[in-house]
């Protein structure tokens, strides 16, 4: 069970959240197919710590950004954006 640091509510149990995956910048709408392919599909294998999105469904009902280590599951909070 993960204890997720919500910037609005404090540390809360994982069961209060829905997972949103990697927070990756999306290319502009008129970008090439190749750019969209890279953004939507390709993932680097060397990303032990990364920013990801979680939706605090049973709390502030906001999408939050946290940084998590995929191997140790350690969190560092980020400002909501």
């Amino acid at each position: 069970m993960l204890l997720i640091p919500c910037p609005n509510c404090g540390a809360r149990d994982q069961s209060e959240f829905a997972y949103g995956g990697l927070r990756a910048p999306l290319p502009p709408l008129d970008a090439s197919i190749g750019d969209w392919h890279t953004a939507v599909h390709l993932r680097s294998g060397e990303m032990p710590v990364r920013e990801e999105l979680w939706y605090h469904a049973c709390g502030c009902e906001r999408w939050i950004v946290v940084s998590r280590n995929l191997t140790t599951h350690e969190f560092a909070p980020k400002d909501a954006s």
Partner: peptide, 18 residues
């Protein structure tokens, strides 16, 4: 599970996540 890591060593990216 180590596919993306090995692909990176070979210089390309895969559409996989662990």
């Amino acid at each position: 599970g180590a596919s993306a890591k090995l692909a990176n060593l070979a210089g390309f990216q895969l559409p996989v996540t662990p």
